Amino acid sequence: MAHSTPAPDRQAARDLVAHFSLEMTGKDVGALHAARDVIPPGTRINVTFLGNEDLQLRVDAAALVRRLGFVPVPHISARRLGSRRQLEEFLSRLQEVGAADSVFVVGGDPAEPEGPYADTLTVIRTGVLQQFGVRQVSVAGYPEGHPDISTDTLWRHLEDKTAELREQGLSAVILTQFAFDTDPVIDWIASVRARDIDSTIRIGTPGPAGIRRLLGFARRFGIGANATIVKKYGFSLGNLMGTAGPDRFVTDLSGRVAADPSAGDVKLHFYTFGGLLATSQWARDYVAAQS
């Protein structure tokens, strides 16, 4: 992993990394305890909705996030919900532990819905979210597209989701898939703003992790990772045994966002492939290097 070095625009780098968010699974409670002293108080921590985890595990993880002084953002996977009753039960349990204020609604992995919700918009349009205290909804963005969804469809869905949330009086955040290349990310941000969508954008960023692991996730999600792109990011396809951090990506992104006032409110969301502690330490050290 590369050591953090000062960015050309140190203030822009600090601004971009400030108020970053993290991601954990329901099984990462031990890792969260280990990282708690490195994560800034009030950090948003997303709790995933995976097929091999149950309701209790997800709720317990969200409750722990709040209890440790962070902001829980539980995921709701639309196609994994078997019924409206299951959605309401999950939201009710989250509300009981004070973790229903902010949620991330995503379509989810199953090719066929397990219940009545085919996508994020279907869940939002139920009107159920507000009934359980939800005030902010994060939705997905895909700077490099989606392997199974056309670009036109992705844009239409993003426009429809943000418009529906605005109509319902809910705050919207766009949380993106991770990337190794800032070029498509910058172009995508410009396209979002050109559509008069002014929501906060959280750019998905891989935390420091093993190179093989990073490439595995890239292949799974259709992320560009050819030799030119990964060299620009900071590692080589010829050496897969080491680790790589997002230093170059974050430094480049921060400068380019700062240079474009129309980019609006842009922050980072870390996918913690290498662990909560390693990612949180990286963010702390990177910010220190800009001071």
Rank of each mutant, 00 (worst) to 15 (best):
M1L: 14
S4F: 05
P8S: 08
D9L: 03
R10P: 10
R14L: 15
V17L: 14
F20K: 07
S21G: 13
T25I: 13
T25N: 04
K27R: 14
D28N: 11
D28L: 07
G30D: 15
T43V: 13
R44D: 11
T48D: 08
T48M: 10
E53Y: 03
Q56T: 15
Q56A: 15
R58N: 03
R58Q: 12
V59A: 08
V59F: 07
A61C: 13
A62M: 05
A62P: 01
R66Q: 10
V71C: 02
V73G: 00
P74Y: 06
L81I: 12
S83H: 08
S83R: 09
L87F: 08
E89R: 13
L91P: 01
S92V: 00
E96L: 10
A99Y: 09
D101E: 14
D101W: 09
F104K: 00
G107D: 02
P113W: 08
T122A: 15
I124R: 02
T126F: 03
T126Y: 03
L129N: 06
L129Y: 08
L129R: 05
Q130Y: 01
F132D: 03
Y142R: 05
E144W: 04
S150D: 14
S150N: 03
S150C: 02
T151G: 01
T151N: 13
H157T: 15
D160N: 14
K161A: 03
T162P: 09
L165A: 11
E167T: 07
L170V: 11
S171L: 04
S171E: 12
A172K: 06
Q177I: 01
Q177N: 09
S191M: 02
S191E: 13
V192R: 00
A194E: 13
I197A: 07
S199G: 04
T205A: 02
G207W: 08
P208G: 12
A209F: 10
G210K: 06
R220H: 12
F221N: 15
G222T: 12
G224S: 14
G224K: 10
I229F: 12
K231R: 15
Y233L: 11
G234S: 10
G234Y: 12
S236C: 01
N239F: 07
N239Q: 13
T243H: 11
R248G: 02
V250T: 08
V250D: 09
L253R: 06
G255R: 14
A259Y: 10
D260M: 08
D260V: 14
H269E: 09
F270P: 07
G274N: 12
T279N: 11
Q281M: 05
A283Q: 02
A283Y: 04
S291R: 11
S291Q: 11
